[in-house]
């Protein structure tokens, strides 16, 4: 089999990433203003505040989005806040439930009292609007099928007025709907943890104040991990991601050099 140019680029990326993943180097990442704002927001809430955490992502984005979600949930539990988890994507339901369960166990948090998982609701726009009117009517039972009113944490929670904010852990544009329907209609404070590719999409919303702040991608996760003093997938993945970025940039430069040399040869 004859290897073509694209095969060499694939192979190069594979080799580069494999080597750097084996190196025990941790890059120090300066904390961005947006990540600091998320940290300060959770820090500034009085203990026992209730936060909605919406796992609005699919399994495909897990390697990037999981460290973001983990860092935020760890921080919230460490500060003594109470969390209500849910998902507006079917696939995010199980992922979110397992994450909350595991982190709650790390901090000795009790289900029903310190955290609750409501599960999945189809049609995200209707679900967001419906929760603004009544969360118990939107989710009459939790993920495990227990009636809403039987769970201690949920007894005083009727709608968005009873929660401090929603943090949408998303790999796409679903957070936009939290802003358009949750924030615009019900004055819900919206924060987000998103993939790096989505960061610039939300810049106008942060500038306009529609979104409070966000933590973006693996870099954001690494920044957050340094703030809470607990290393995780973000810090571990930063070197590999940074090296891959440099590799892609070098390929762009190389491709352009070849392009211009070829043009000159042809006399164009």
């Amino acid at each position: 089999m004859k290897l073509e140019t694209r095969h060499w680029t694939f192979l190069g990326l594979f080799v580069v990433i494999t080597i750097v993943m084996l190196l025990p180097i941790r890059l120090s990442v300066p904390v961005s203003e947006q990540t600091q704002k998320m940290y300060d927001f959770i820090e500034s809430l009085p203990p026992n505040s209730i936060l909605l955490i919406s796992f609005d992502h699919e399994a495909s984005a897990l390697p990037e989005i999981r460290p973001v979600g983990l860092a935020i949930v760890r921080h919230a539990f460490a500060k003594g806040h109470r969390l209500i988890g849910l998902s507006l994507f079917a696939e995010g339901t199980v992922i979110g439930y397992r994450m909350m369960q595991n982190v709650a166990a790390e901090y000795g948090r009790e289900y029903g009292k310190d955290y609750v998982y409501l599960g999945f609701k189809p049609q995200y726009i209707a679900a967001i609007l419906s929760m603004g009117e009544s969360i118990p009517r939107t989710f009459p039972e939790d993920y495990m099928g227990r009636p809403y009113e039987e769970l201690e944490l949920l007894r005083g929670v009727h709608n968005y007025d009873d929660v401090a904010a929603v943090i949408s852990i998303a790999d796409g544009s679903l957070t936009t709907h939290w802003m358009e329907y949750g924030a615009a209609r019900y004055n819900l404070t919206v924060l987000a943890g998103v993939t790096a590719a989505m960061v610039t999409t939300y810049d106008p919303y942060i500038a306009s104040g529609q979104m409070y702040t966000l933590v973006g991608g693996l870099r954001g996760a690494a920044e957050y991990e340094s703030l809470i003093g607990r290393e995780g997938g973000g810090s571990r993945g930063m070197l590999a991601q940074s090296t891959a970025h440099i590799y892609v940039l070098l390929l762009i430069v190389l491709g352009n050099v070849i392009y211009f040399l070829t043009r000159r040869k042809r006399g164009l």
Partner: peptide, 17 residues
């Protein structure tokens, strides 16, 4: 799903060149 998504990195590398 994570595998399919990760393949994007290889396609981006090839496309960048």
């Amino acid at each position: 799903q994570a595998t399919v998504f990760s393949l994007l990195a290889f396609f981006v590398a090839s496309a960048s060149f």
